[in-house]
Design a protein around this nucleic acid. Structure first.
Lengths: 142, 142
DNA sequence: CTCTTTTCTGTGCATATACACTTTTGCAAG
DNA sequence: CTTGCAAAAGTGTATATGCACAGAAAAGAG
């Protein structure tokens, strides 16, 4: 069964709607750790990518560099991340502080609850499609 | 092939990332009409639901009522939508103006280009399951 | 009719997001 | 060394989003 593009619900509106619903769920789960899912995600990526420049981090997250500046500034104010100059370039490198590591460890348990709840609400087949769908969408290149 | 929840990328982060990428694509396509995809989507839903209260609109879009207030206020300033009291209740009803209808008609052509581009990036097989899946995603109740 | 309750709506604050523009800073050409 | 370029970062402004709280208004209770 085929669908014409115009008869299909707007992919963007659907993605935004889903993102809102999922954000509310994950935010509620992470609330005891005092983190939002955006902040959790950001910390997790900073941890994974080690000391990293804003440019590289932004590319990986497909997030505007200036958005990163402000989001990281909040985390820096809460002593979760630290900036240091790079000896080899003029870039500022961001990395986790001790407190950031601890918060992340604590929050990961809470995250897993939400992640598992969502995960189990899908069948195996749905999961495969979901991942293919989302991977396709998040790598759309213009 | 099965996946554990913790080995899977965060559904929320992926959804947000996809939403960002798609928003940039649709916003660029709609730019000649002077609308963003959020505004286009909002206008489209106001058109579809006729004169409707903020509460019902918010439920349909899974959007916080106070967010609607502000987003609609912008569209009202641009004379795209109009508010009127409901005789039968204390609700304020929102509907499209003539200018709103015109802008929407013009923008729909632009929207369709973006929609088609995304649509055609999927195989026929993927599309077969997509409809049910999207409906599932956007009606998830966590 | 007045008071309370319920049902909508609106505001203040905070975070998230991106574009346009400015500022800072290494580095190389002269 | 100075100047200018290019790369990285930061700021101003605007929209999007949601929570906590406040305000207004219809509907009932007495």
């Amino acid at each position: 069964m085929e669908f014409s593009a115009e008869a299909t619900a707007c992919y963007c509106a659907t993605a935004r709607k889903s993102a809102r619903a999922l954000t509310a769920l994950y935010d509620a789960a992470l609330e005891p750790a005092g983190l939002r899912v955006t902040q959790y995600s950001l910390l997790k990526n900073v941890q994974r990518m080690g000391p990293v420049s804003l440019l590289r981090l932004g590319e990986a997250l497909r997030l505007d560099r200036t958005t990163l500046v402000r989001n990281l500034k909040l985390l820096e104010k809460n002593a979760m991340v630290r900036f240091e100059p790079d000896a080899a370039s003029r870039a500022r490198l961001v990395s986790l502080t001790e407190k950031g590591e601890q918060s992340l460890t604590e929050a990961t348990h809470l995250w897993l609850k939400a992640q598992t709840a969502v995960h189990e609400s899908f069948s195996g087949e749905e999961r495969a499609i979901l991942r293919a769908f989302l991977r396709r969408l998040e790598t759309v290149d213009f």
